[in-house]
C-alpha cells in the first residue's frame, strides 16, 4: 500500500511496490484515457528550489493528464524562501493547500527533512548531488520496456558518478535485482561516493568494477547509462574544464558495443553523446524522456491512492 507514503530514497519502496508502479505506468502508457479523471479535484504542489525542465514539466504534465491541477514555484526567488523561511515552515504552509508535493532542492537531504514535517506525501524530485528517485523510476521503466527484464544485466554507468544523483539512485535500485553487474566508468576524481561503494555494493556482494575508459568495457554492456559532467556540482572551474570532455560516446566507440546494447541518458546532455548516435536503434534516451511522465503519473496516483 503506497497511499500516503513519501518517496525520498530509492529504497523507500519494496521491490513489489516498485513493480506495482511500473505496472501501472505501463497501463497508463497504453490506456491513457482510462486515467484522465482519477486526480480530479486534487492539487500537486511543485517546490523547485533549483532549475529543472524535464522533471518539473513531466510532473506538471503528469498531474494535469490525471485530471488534477498544479501550483508551485520554479525558482525560490518567487517565494518566501528568499525571505529566509525555513523548510519546515514552507512545507507546513504548502501542505495545508495541496494534496501532494514534488520538491527539488540544491541541498542534499532537504526533501527528507521536509518529509518529517509533512502530513502529505513528499516526492524527492532531486536533491543536490544525492538522489533522484523519480528518475530512477523512469530508468527502471525504460530498462523494463527495452530489455523486458530488470535482472541478469550488465550495466555500465559513465561520466560523473560522484555528483550524478541519477547514478546513485539507479545503482541503489538495480542492485536489488538478481544478477546485476555494474561497470563504473569515470575519471578517478568523479568516482561513486563511498557510501554507495561500501553500503550498497561491497557489503551486499554486488559485483562491480571501476574503470577509467569507456572503450575498454563497452563490448560487455547490456545497458550504457551516460551522464553529463555537471558544471554546477564543481567547486572549481579548472577541474570542470579538464574533465568535461573525458567521456564522449561517438560512432567509433559504439562500433565496439553489442548489437543489443541500450543507451540511456537522464538528460540534459551537453556533448557526451554525439548527435550522430541519435538515429542508432540502440539509442533509447528519447523513449526514456517520454516514459518519465508515465511513471510520475503512476507514482502520483499510487501515493494519492486513486489507482
Amino acid at each position: 500500500m503506497l497511499q500516503g507514503k513519501h518517496l525520498i530514497d530509492p529504497e523507500d519502496f519494496s521491490i513489489e511496490e516498485l513493480g506495482s508502479i511500473l505496472e501501472l505506468a505501463e497501463d497508463m502508457l497504453n490506456n491513457q484515457a482510462k486515467f484522465k479523471d482519477v486526480c480530479n479535484g486534487q492539487i500537486l504542489g511543485t517546490l523547485f528550489y533549483e532549475p529543472s525542465t524535464r522533471t518539473r514539466f513531466s510532473f506538471e504534465a503528469a498531474m494535469i493528464r490525471l485530471g488534477g491541477r498544479v501550483i508551485g514555484f520554479a525558482e525560490p526567488g518567487s517565494s518566501s524562501v528568499m525571505k529566509g523561511e525555513s523548510i519546515p515552515d514552507t512545507i507546513r504552509t504548502v501542505a495545508s493547500y495541496v494534496d501532494i508535493i514534488a520538491m527539488r532542492h540544491p541541498k542534499e537531504g532537504a526533501p527528507k527533512y521536509a518529509s518529517y514535517y509533512s502530513p502529505i506525501p513528499i516526492i524527492n524530485a532531486g536533491d543536490g548531488g544525492h538522489q533522484h528517485p523519480t528518475q530512477m523510476l523512469t530508468d527502471l521503466f525504460t530498462i523494463k520496456e527495452v530489455k523486458g527484464k530488470l535482472s541478469n544485466l550488465t550495466i555500465g554507468l559513465c561520466g560523473d558518478l560522484k555528483f550524478g544523483r541519477t547514478v546513485h539512485s539507479l545503482i541503489k535500485a538495480m542492485s536489488r535485482y538478481e544478477n546485476v553487474k555494474f561497470l563504473l566508468i569515470s575519471p578517478n576524481e568523479l568516482q561513486i561516493p563511498e557510501y554507495i561503494r561500501t553500503e550498497i555494493l561491497a557489503n551486499k556482494d554486488i559485483p562491480f568494477t571501476e574503470v577509467e575508459r569507456l572503450e575498454d568495457v563497452i563490448d560487455s554492456l547490456d545497458i550504457l547509462y551516460m551522464t553529463r559532467v555537471q558544471k554546477e556540482r564543481f567547486f572549481n572551474e579548472a577541474d570542470y574544464i579538464r574533465l568535461k570532455d573525458s567521456y564522449i560516446l561517438d560512432k567509433e566507440k559504439l562500433k565496439l558495443a553489442k548489437d543489443d546494447l541500450s543507451i540511456l541518458h537522464p538528460f540534459p546532455r551537453v556533448n557526451e553523446i554525439s548527435y550522430e548516435i541519435d538515429e542508432d536503434p540502440r539509442a533509447c534516451y528519447f523513449d526514456q524522456l517520454k516514459y518519465g511522465m508515465y511513471v510520475r503519473m503512476a507514482l502520483i496516483a499510487k501515493l494519492l491512492g486513486v489507482a
Binding site: 525555513s86 523548510i87 532542492h105 540544491p106 541541498k107 542534499e108 537531504g109 532537504a110 527528507k112 527533512y113 536533491d127 543536490g128 548531488g129 544525492h130 557510501y195 561500501t198 553500503e199
Partner: peptide, 18 residues
C-alpha cells in the same frame, strides 16, 4: 552540500553503518 549546512535549528543526525 548537506541540508544541515543551510537550515537553522536542524539537528545533525547520524546512523551507525558499521
Amino acid at each position: 552540500r548537506c541540508v544541515t549546512s543551510m537550515e537553522r535549528n536542524i539537528v545533525h543526525k547520524f546512523v551507525l553503518m558499521d
